[in-house]
Computed example of a mutant assay.
Amino acid sequence: MASERPLSTPLNQILPPLILGGAGFSYQHTSTPSVEQTREVVSLAFQLGVRAIDTSPYYEPSEELLGEALSHPQFTSKYDRNDYILMTKVGRVSATKSDFSPEWVRFSVARSLQRLRTDYLDVVFCHDIELVEEENVLEAIAVLNEMVEAGTIRYIGISGYPIDTLARVARRSREMYGRPLDVIQNWAQLTLQNDRLEREGLQVFREAGVSCVCSSSPLASGLLRGEGVPIAALGDWHPAPEGLRRAAHAAAVYVASQGEILARLALRYALWRAKVCSTGNVRVGTIMGGTSVAEIEENITTAVGVLGRDGETLGWNGAGREVESSNDSADVQDLELFRAVQEILGQWRNYSFSGENPATEGDVVQTKL
């Protein structure tokens, strides 16, 4: 099945502002990921305007579950394959193993095509590139370039946490292959807790020729919510130290005392900043998670309030309820809560999971009540 989308169309012209994250259908985030639940979540997300999905073989068994959902007759009767963007990754194999060799990249893409039940992938990222030598990543990008020429994939990206590493590999890739990467995915750094992607990342990515950024983990992988970090079948994998967890909990308690929910507030902040940063030819899409129908419905309702709609889908030009004097202004009450949460986080604000600017583990958290 060939895509009707012109291959020359830059990704920043078609990337939507909200993307459904496939990690919610993995053992990292839920103990019992299921076909039925995935199908229900995907159907509702599309009904509410989502038109892009991001996953990875590492998010086991996300690809298989999504493939079942996307190929189900109830879904295919409403949506064609070219109606949505499907993104996956290569390289990250398990918690302790990565493989960016040409042989594995080819195998991984072929397996993803089979699992997702499609004959092309819109975006393939090299996953968590900081875990291997940069030369290995550049070698993998060469293979992905071949796949773009063959029509197997449409766009190429890299993903990871350290902004400096992502920018350096993007520059080197552009120098080696004569074209910039289409997209970079960075996690947990356009959030109420850490905004380094906005302050530093977007500029260096732009200098490397990258005009599309996917900001994932707007809740810092579940840190910014009242329930605390997710603990599922794979146990407690979250990198936040205990002091940061206490600070996040204190922030959740304060926000609740003001009649709001931290997760909802944090999502509004991330979407607002991504929208503000999407200027000119640069687009910042937010990858939003969710493991249940109720969670997805609440998250997308929150997103609509910030992003508005373009027709039936979530779009860049809609005006949401958070608008004050312009489409880039957050609600005054939200601004006050944003500042309060960041004050509670104190020295843990902008704490980096990669070890940059660490706070002190014993910092005392003062709860604002």
Rank of each mutant, 00 (worst) to 15 (best):
M1N: 09
P6Y: 06
P10K: 11
P10A: 10
P16F: 11
P16S: 06
I19E: 06
G24P: 04
F25K: 01
H29M: 15
T32K: 13
V41N: 03
L44D: 02
L44I: 12
S62G: 00
L65Q: 07
H72P: 05
H72L: 04
K78L: 15
Y79F: 15
Y79M: 03
A95N: 12
S98R: 01
P102Q: 10
W104V: 02
V105A: 08
A110R: 12
L113E: 05
Q114D: 13
R115V: 01
R115W: 05
L116T: 06
L116H: 09
T118L: 02
D119T: 13
Y120Q: 01
D122I: 09
C126R: 00
H127R: 02
L131S: 12
V132A: 14
E134V: 03
E135Q: 14
V137G: 00
I141T: 07
M147Y: 03
I156M: 11
G157F: 11
T165H: 11
R172D: 10
M176E: 15
Y177R: 03
R179D: 01
L197T: 11
E198D: 11
V210G: 04
L223F: 07
P230F: 04
P230I: 06
P230S: 04
A232S: 14
L244M: 15
I261F: 06
R268P: 06
R268N: 06
G285C: 11
I287G: 04
I287T: 14
G305L: 06
G305C: 07
G318C: 12
E322I: 12
S325K: 06
N327Y: 04
S329H: 10
E336K: 15
R339N: 05
Q342F: 02
E343G: 10
E343I: 06
P358V: 09
T360P: 00
